[in-house]
Nucleic acid binder design. Structure first.
Lengths: 144, 144
DNA sequence: ATTTGTGCAAATCGTTTGCATCTGA
DNA sequence: TCAGATGCAAACGATTTGCACAAAT
């Protein structure tokens, strides 16, 4: 995936529409536009607010409510991952593979750490009747 | 610390007042009362809302705003740790040692994992000029 | 007395929802 | 056509703030 060649604009739109359709969602104007913004580059970390602004700047008319709906729909469809690093602000990550994050507390920036890098061992067994859903690692960093 | 004997009520109040004073905070009625509730047992995970209710039930008159203020002051003073597991709900942990958590997504319950249990290795170096503040691991679990 | 904390209610922030309208298949 | 999506504004829950009052040193 990381060695994939740059996609042409046209091709990108096509794969974008296909992506939305494949997720079982109707490829509406705004979903395609948002998917276009989200999946243009390899890895993106966005908040609803930020994506809404970005869409506005790109000349796409979408309401903030629709941005929220779309982000959640994409997440449910497995196109996005939600990253929890801050109470009171939801981040969405276009990298859906297993990986971890640096979190710059100062400005709220997220930086990917490739999935094979960090290893977490000796995770204890969860209580009876429970199963591990996923293990999240957040490396909080600050100015040295 | 875990082998410490049960404290008597009186003794507990004294250590509680001392704790607040030692943190550089004026030992006011409500701070002492909240500290009393928080540090009575070894490990507690509370939300502001929950602590507020608990205080009310214990007959302590405190406003929710003051609970928020106090929790943040205690956190800044190093008496509490803030645990981020959910956008939109802040948890405070009386266990300030290095340790990790199970998070039961279904009901928002937090369960401590002792600090020596999990080991995280190969954390990459942070970007130039940045230093690791802390590494948080959250093991999200659900009904099997 | 002076400084610091408190309570309340209103303000704010991020997010969700209800409902009338629009749109893609 | 018509289920499904959108926009808007209002509702919402968690958290914060402003300011008059109260309590600690």
């Amino acid at each position: 995936m990381s060695a994939m060649r740059k996609k042409s604009g046209k091709e990108h739109m096509e794969t974008t529409g296909a992506k939305v359709r494949a997720a079982g969602l109707r490829p509406t104007r705004q979903r395609i536009a948002l998917a276009g913004l989200l999946f243009r580059n390899e890895d993106r970390h966005v908040t609803a607010e930020a994506l809404h602004e970005e869409a506005a700047k790109a000349g796409v008319r979408v309401s903030l409510a629709t941005v929220y709906n779309t982000l959640h729909q994409f997440t449910q469809a497995g196109l996005l991952n939600e990253v929890v690093v801050d109470s009171g602000c939801a981040y969405f990550d276009t990298n859906i593979g297993e990986h971890q994050h640096f979190y710059v507390e100062e400005n709220g920036e997220l930086i990917d750490i490739p999935g094979e890098t960090i290893s977490v061992s000796n995770v204890p067994a969860p209580p009876k009747g429970m199963a591990v859903d996923r293990v999240d690692v957040v490396v909080r960093i600050k100015r040295a």
